[in-house]
Design a binder for these strands. Structure first.
Lengths: 340, 340
DNA sequence: CGCGCGCTTTGCAACGTTGCAACACTCTGC
DNA sequence: GCAGAGTGTTGCAACGTTGCAAAGCGCGCG
């Protein structure tokens, strides 16, 4: 059934409802034989607590929300996997929603009914600005992921994007590449990820004395493989195409590599490629992908830590800004070509 | 806040609690000016219904659970994306759990607290057999995904795996390949996916008069790229290695391709590869991957249909067995090599 | 003019659980 | 033998919402 209530168990065990509740909740002061009798009845009737009632009473649901633009993007699905696992240790369950990065849907979720349901929210915004977020942050423990200058509206976890972009670009410079392009500019978004990575890219070129070439900074509509391929084709159509490209995520990079190879180029000989995110595909692609690897496990764990703190302690603490580590993972796409 | 109750809104609007509830629930018989006054108060106080209380009263949570072995496997994350989207149309929210395919954790979830929470469950079992499932199926609307001979314990959605495997193998045979291996056998699992695909593979070979070669049926521990690569290395170490391989999923295939190329082989010239699942990576990999493409959108939609029916109608209907379409998508990994 | 019908609003109770506080009982120490 | 501390168990109320049924109201029709 599923309609077994404490009352039913109590009747079978011959005790009060409250005692059954005590057993279920592991309240220490229960006589061993009473406990045994109740547990037998629980087992017999296959009792399961009604969480709606429990939540109503306790004011907690044990649910946390993960709100991401697209769950089928490898970066987000890997993050989700870590988060679900980490949540399990705190006996929390994860509820997933996708926004497609659309501000309207992001807002709908934050203010919507589902938000009232969860004890906390891990949110990776693309379209929403700090102003929108501040309203919701009052209602519910909120952790922001991704590269948004926090502004103190909520706890915020990210890697140092500028530093990572610098590392990626410097790696290409150190390899002797002179014409380094960037794929992944998204000037239309409020989302600052692309801007920060672009900043790092530009700073590195400037520091190395490379000229800045406008057409080398390629805008993309979205962050999928197809967009990376299209951007690459644009670059290859230039009179003087690049000999290296820094892509703002791995999917763009994989698409770019694909387009380069379709055009007859050898990666990395003719074109060195660096990505960002270290998704699993990049480890087995041909060539394997040099990339910036953010510590996703740390992101998940720290995010839950933040939520837990807000839930337990006072919420008035000023918002935290947490930086998690990242590292450059050098693989074939920027290394020495297998044939050279 | 978040602690705004109907009572508070009622006080501000100067009506009864029940009337506010009527407005919130779009009950038709509310006088226009009353409605306006209540709505103003709702807006002013930023009221949001307490879902725990609502669920307790209504007996529905609006939540459905998706239980998969690993959410970061592309196949499952793509499926999750579709499911979340499809669920939105029914104003359901999706709760995700990972089992790692371990029977204990699968059972824990089915019988655990979280299951009591959701209105229905979409479950992709690896380790659990029909016997285990039947107990839970009574409690809650349940849809099984994947290739399990249903046994009528619950609604079940899958593609015709044997037919698909036959199609994949016949494709390789038609290309003139003579030594066709299979990667992905998992004899230790209750899960029947691998067995069905193996059946199809064997049947095709037999029909074409090919001998069955034991060492060509390679067992894998898991279904990740690394396992595919390892399996491929085993095959390449044989005195007479295969000239084609049918992998039971795309990740295995991508790993296998990687290993083949590391060994100096050209795919598809020296080795034709067919995968299964049609994950996004395979469309942009080098070479792009020939694969069996199940209609994932149909799976998601039909799954929700089943749940909806069970929720509305009587649950005693005998379990349905739904077959969704699939098709063979031919790409480079089995086609004519770009250089040939 | 009065009756009845339909629209609008309301109070009460209940969903299943747990916090609180009180109770009954046993045991220890004087 | 009795106060006091501790152990084990209980009843009551409340969490915020909605179903039910009934009450209040105004209107049209006979």
């Amino acid at each position: 059934m599923g309609g077994v209530r404490l009352k039913d168990v109590a009747a079978v065990a011959g005790v009060s409802v409250r005692t059954v509740s005590n057993v279920v909740n592991r309240f220490p002061h229960v006589a061993p034989d009473t406990r045994a009798r109740v547990e037998k009845a629980l087992e017999e009737l296959n009792y399961r607590p009604n969480l709606a009632a429990r939540n109503l009473r306790r004011g907690r649901s044990g649910l946390i929300g993960l709100v991401v633009p697209e769950i089928d993007s490898p970066y987000f699905s890997e993050l989700a996997a870590h988060l679900v696992l980490a949540a399990e240790e705190r006996s929390w369950t994860v509820l997933v929603d996708q926004t497609g990065g659309e501000p309207a849907r992001e807002r709908a979720f934050l203010e919507g009914a589902a938000a009232a349901f969860v004890d906390g929210l891990v949110f990776s915004p693309w379209g929403l600005g700090a102003a929108d977020l501040s309203r919701s942050a009052e209602d519910i423990p909120l952790v922001l992921l991704g590269e948004r200058t926090g502004e103190g509206v909520a706890d915020h976890i990210a890697i140092d994007n500028v530093a990572a972009a610098v590392q990626a670009t410097e790696h290409l410079i150190a390899l002797g590449r002179r014409r380094i392009a960037a794929i992944g500019v998204q000037s239309h978004l409020t989302n600052e990820t692309a801007r920060l990575r672009l900043d790092g890219y530009r700073a590195s070129l400037r520091a190395a004395g490379h000229p800045r070439r406008e057409p080398f900074e390629v805008e993309v509509a979205a962050l999928h493989r197809g967009d990376g391929a299209a951007a690459m084709r644009t670059l290859l159509a230039l009179p003087e195409p690049p000999d290296a490209v820094f892509c703002f995520n791995d999917q763009l990079a994989l698409g770019a590599i694909r387009a380069a190879r379709d055009a007859g180029l050898d990666v990395p000989r003719d074109l060195a490629v660096v990505g960002f995110d270290d998704i699993e595909d990049g480890r087995y692609s041909c060539p394997s992908l040099t990339t910036i690897s953010p510590d996703k496990w740390a992101i998940a764990v720290r995010a839950l830590e933040c939520l837990a703190e807000r839930l337990d302690g006072d919420r008035s603490n000023s918002a935290r800004d947490i930086l998690v580590p990242h590292r450059l993972v050098v693989r074939e796409s920027s290394g020495h070509p297998s044939g050279t």
